[in-house]
């Protein structure tokens, strides 16, 4: 059943007619040719499709496009400012935090979400003191908070220090 929507993605505005069954991921990739979000499992289990929806990380494969025509979508592409990469992009390069790179845009968006959640003081399941005012993104914290992103090349040992480097620079890691 066709429905007219407007998607706002990475600063651009895109009027679209979509079948109501279209996910945000498919609308981005197949209709708008914005291909940094990747389709891995298509069931919310791998995180390759992670984007920021009004600044919050979500699995775009489980979001119907018709439900977000009033939201701002940011992909890994959109995190860059023009030609200047986002600090997370630079940290992933510096730490060699990928092999094939397929999961990387989702990892980067998820990490951006992790940093925002830590700045907001959100705890995780490995946080000892739930009432603590500040979050300290230890390696354990990063591992738990990034657990919604799988890397079949198993670059985890480099992803954790990449996220840690930016967390330290942003003051959410001691």
């Amino acid at each position: 059943m066709d429905t007219e929507i407007t998607l706002r993605v990475d600063g651009g505005t895109h009027p679209l007619t979509v079948d109501t069954r279209t996910t945000l991921l498919d609308a981005l990739r197949e209709r708008l040719r914005i291909t940094s979000p990747k389709k891995g499992c298509d069931h919310g289990q791998c995180g390759a499709c992670t984007v920021l929806l009004d600044g919050r990380r979500v699995n775009s494969c489980l979001v119907l496009a018709v439900t977000v025509d009033d939201a701002e979508v940011t992909t890994s592409d959109g995190l860059a400012e023009g030609d200047r990469e986002h600090p997370l992009h630079r940290a992933f390069l510096d730490n060699d935090a990928f092999q094939c790179g397929y999961c990387t845009p989702g990892q980067v968006c998820s990490a951006a979400g992790v940093l925002a959640e830590a700045r907001a003081g959100w705890p995780s399941t490995v946080t000892d003191d739930l009432t603590a005012a500040d979050v300290d993104l230890t390696d354990d914290e990063i591992r738990d908070r990034m657990s919604g992103n799988l890397c079949r090349c198993a670059a985890y040992a480099h992803i954790v220090p990449a996220v840690a480097a930016v967390a330290e620079a942003e003051g959410v890691r001691r």
């Binding site: 699995n59 979400g113 907001a120 009432t131």
Partner: peptide, 29 residues
């Protein structure tokens, strides 16, 4: 809900249960 200060202080069992479930992406949605 998991991050709400009142839940964390008065009903830690609820924060802990929520944080033990799913992933950060899923809990956001």
């Amino acid at each position: 809900l998991a991050a709400d200060r009142r839940v964390r202080e008065r009903f830690p069992v609820l924060s802990q249960a929520l944080l033990a479930g799913a992933s950060g992406q899923l809990r956001n949605r």
